[in-house]
């Protein structure tokens, strides 16, 4: 009974206290059953303080694909809260940047509009030219037909011409009662 109690107390405390550790080292001096028990516990007690505690960064563990909301992310080393712009210089720089952007936008818009206008104008002119060409062709064919008719009329007898003349107005007339 008596030897067991000190054993238990020794086994618990050795890692923290130095002298008891020494006692542990002087195991051979003590009775044989004691060192056996101490031996078994010694490696655990000596290993604990030696074990290096690694941080997550040191271990290079791949990070889990966890999503952190945009509002939660806080950049380190940055000032907390809003940063106001109240001095004239910074306001002027912002204004200059904004103005330049706007100018660029307007310029590009105008360029686009002008190009579109040019394209439209070209298309319109093309269409007009096509229409003119068509009209000319039509006139030409009309003239051709007229000439051919005149020739025919010249060749035919005067009686036939008279008949044709009398017939023509009759044919053309249209009346809706």
């Amino acid at each position: 009974m008596a030897p067991t109690k000190p054993q238990s107390s020794k086994s618990r405390k050795p890692p923290s206290s130095g002298p008891k550790g020494k006692v542990g080292k002087s195991k051979p001096k003590g009775p044989p059953p004691k060192p056996q028990q101490v031996k078994t516990k010694r490696p655990t007690s000596s290993a604990k303080p030696k074990r290096k505690v690694y941080t997550e960064k040191e271990l290079d563990i791949p990070k889990l694909n966890m999503i952190t909301p945009a509002g939660v992310q806080k950049p380190k080393g940055k000032k907390k809260g809003k940063i106001f712009v109240d001095d004239q210089e910074s306001m002027m720089t912002i204004l200059a940047i904004v103005n330049a952007e706007k100018e660029g936008q307007i310029e590009s818009k105008m360029m686009k509009a002008r190009q579109m206008e040019e394209i439209r104008e070209a298309r319109r002119q093309e269409a007009e030219a096509r229409q003119q060409h068509k009209r000319e062709k039509l006139e030409e064919t009309k003239d051709l037909i007229r000439k051919s008719r005149k020739r025919k009329s010249d060749t035919t007898s005067t009686d036939a011409e008279k008949v044709a003349k009398t017939e023509k107005p009759g044919k053309k007339r249209v009346s809706f009662g």
């Binding site: 809003k82 940063i83 712009v85 910074s90 912002i94």
Partner: peptide, 10 residues
């Protein structure tokens, strides 16, 4: 009442 921040000014 406060001054504007940079994005607000922009």
């Amino acid at each position: 009442m406060r001054p504007l921040t940079e994005p607000e000014t922009r």
